[in-house]
């Protein structure tokens, strides 16, 4: 019943709008030339009010929603990205405000007048060259900064990095740490079976001290290296607070390293949120559970990390051998 009532109201609304519009267009068509000029002028005002209204909204919303975006970057790499982002925001922001203002200002200022002539202005090569070269110069700056940092972020992993392997499958991440030997045991897909989904080669001695972790725990200030993989479909290892991500692709090993700089405790204070935690979220559509594929990340002091590290049990000795 309520659907029918709702639909009826809607239909009625459309009928009212159509009738009003019909009448209003009819009145317009009866107008003399002078009044037609007025109707164009009303149109210009209409567009200018809407245009500038939206422009004001787009600027004001930066102050409303700006504070809700990610807190300060929690990794060295994230700071580089954030800085480039800030430069980009400022440059594009200036262009945005200038061009939108000109657009709606021109639309209003040069509105139709019966006895005015538009200015026949078809070409101006110097202007064209100017607005080819100026954007090109600005973009060159962005390209140079961007590529420089890009290569730094994807530079070779430092030798002392802590080695971790994350593997995505529908809809969870498995996390494997290299043990005391700092080497991850090799995987071999011919060894895959329901008890050994990752196909870890237990004949490789370096696999024996590897352990599986429920959370990703990282020491602050130390480089950490992630070997990223996936079993079934493509996932994406997204660490929003560290500003880093990398796809997890079945059959194509990928890699990422970074240096976390802010501990979870510090970030709790920074964000005034006692429940704050770093997370990994999946960022590539991987099926119906895509939206709920997370892993908690903890950044702790070196001492805490070592304590945690020692408390972990080798997967080989505690599970496989049992």
């Amino acid at each position: 019943m309520s659907i029918i009532l709702g639909l009826l109201t809607l239909v009625l609304l459309y009928i009212v709008v159509v009738q009003i519009s019909k009448a209003s267009d009819l009145i317009k068509s009866l107008r003399s030339d002078d009044e037609q000029e007025e109707s164009f002028s009303n149109g210009a005002l209409f567009v200018a009010v809407i245009g500038f209204g939206v422009l004001v909204y787009s600027i004001v919303s930066c102050f409303i929603y700006g504070p809700t975006i990610l807190p300060k970057p929690a990794s060295e790499q994230g700071v580089w990205i954030d800085n480039l982002l800030k430069i980009t925001i400022v440059l594009t922001g200036i262009v945005f405000v200038i061009t939108q203002t000109l657009l709606f200002w021109f639309a209003y200022k040069y509105q139709y007048k019966k006895d005015r002539k538009a200015y026949f202005f078809a070409d101006h090569n110097k202007l064209e060259i100017a607005w080819t070269i100026i954007p090109a110069a600005v973009l060159t700056l962005l390209i140079v900064f961007g590529i420089q940092k890009w290569f730094k972020i994807f530079s070779p992993t430092p030798k002392e990095a802590i080695r971790i392997e994350v593997v995505g499958k529908q809809y969870a991440w498995s996390v494997r740490y290299a043990g005391a030997d700092k080497k991850l045991g090799k995987r071999d897909f011919s060894l895959v079976n329901p008890d050994n989904e990752l196909g870890i080669n237990w004949n490789d001695a370096s696999s024996h001290d590897d352990f599986m972790a429920d959370e990703i725990v990282l020491p602050v200030g130390k480089p950490v290296s992630f070997d990223i993989g996936a079993l079934d479909v493509i996932h994406n290892f997204w660490l929003p607070h560290f500003r880093l991500m990398m796809s997890a692709v079945p059959g194509v090993p990928t890699h990422l390293w970074f240096r976390p700089t802010v501990t979870t405790e510090e970030m709790k204070k920074e964000t005034n949120n006692p429940n704050f935690e770093y997370v990994v979220a999946c960022n590539k559509l991987c099926g119906s559970g895509h939206y709920n594929m997370k892993k908690v990340v903890k950044v702790v002091s070196q001492e805490e990390y070592e304590k945690w590290f020692r408390s972990q049990k080798s997967y080989y000795y505690s599970v496989v051998k049992q």
């Binding site: 480039l84 982002l85 980009t88 945005f96 961007g146 590529i147 940092k149 994406n236 991500m245 960022n283």
Partner: peptide, 24 residues
Amino acid sequence: SMFISGGLTGIWLGNSTVDIQLHD
């Protein structure tokens, strides 16, 4: 207006370094 608004954010996303944070 739309082309300006959407085009400018293309400069953010087209820069691989910034895209690390914004991709998808």
